[in-house]
């Protein structure tokens, strides 16, 4: 379709929005991977969540 004389601006605004949303999705996914990796490593070390008497406090 023809977007007229200002097609550059229209494409740019849709494109930038797309980039921002993809950035948000990437942030959420990467963050999840980092936290899950840390949880796995802690589980391998043998630190368990269900043992409230283990901590000093």
């Amino acid at each position: 379709m023809d977007l007229g004389p200002h097609s550059g601006f229209i494409i740019a605004s849709y494109g930038l929005c797309l980039v921002t949303v993809l950035g948000l999705i990437a942030w959420v996914r990467i963050d999840k991977a980092i936290q899950e990796k840390a949880l796995r490593e802690l589980a391998e070390q043998g630190v368990s969540r269900r043992r409230p008497d283990a901590g000093g406090r």
Partner: peptide, 18 residues
């Protein structure tokens, strides 16, 4: 993610104290 992050934090604190 935030809930997981806090869980990691608690576990790490526990890992350091024991």
């Amino acid at each position: 993610n935030e809930i997981l992050r806090r869980r990691v934090r608690t576990l790490r604190l526990r890992a350091a104290t024991s």
